[in-house]
């Protein structure tokens, strides 16, 4: 179910400059091993056709009880406009097990590509 996310290519860069992708940086360990801390993600904005991301998709969304907090988790189940989210690393994750299901409206988009986290982290760690 969890197919590895592709590395970002030139097409992704063009889509970013065209405003069709947003760039996020992962903060924390809850999505290990798929996403590493400080890794960057390209996110395709959610289409407004009411279609839910399928299980296994990694999404970026607003925290259901704190609109200012943006989180990244994997879709565990989706039904009727509501998503059950989980971190890939459950021991270090706060997800739908605690905050419940997330409305589709809170989803910013789905992760379509990642930037390989090679090189030094920006904070020097």
């Amino acid at each position: 179910m969890n197919t590895p996310l592709p590395a970002a290519g030139l097409k992704d860069l063009l889509l970013f400059f065209l405003g069709r992708r947003r760039l996020f940086q992962v903060e924390g360990d809850s999505m290990l091993p798929a996403l590493q801390p400080k890794q960057r993600l390209l996110v395709k904005l959610r289409p407004h056709d009411g279609r839910s991301p399928s299980p296994g998709t990694v999404v970026v969304c607003h925290h259901p009880s704190n609109i200012n907090l943006v989180i990244t988790k994997r879709v565990w189940q989706s039904n009727d406009g509501w998503l059950e989210l989980r971190g890939d690393n459950p021991a270090a994750s706060t997800d739908s097990r605690q905050f419940g299901q997330v409305s589709l409206e809170q989803v910013i988009g789905e992760v379509t590509a990642v930037i390989s986290p090679t090189g030094r982290h920006s904070d020097g760690t």
Binding site: F24, Q25, V26, E27, G28, K73, G87, S93
Partner: peptide, 9 residues
Amino acid sequence: AEAAQAHCD
């Protein structure tokens, strides 16, 4: 890049 939190509360 914007921050996407992936940790526990």
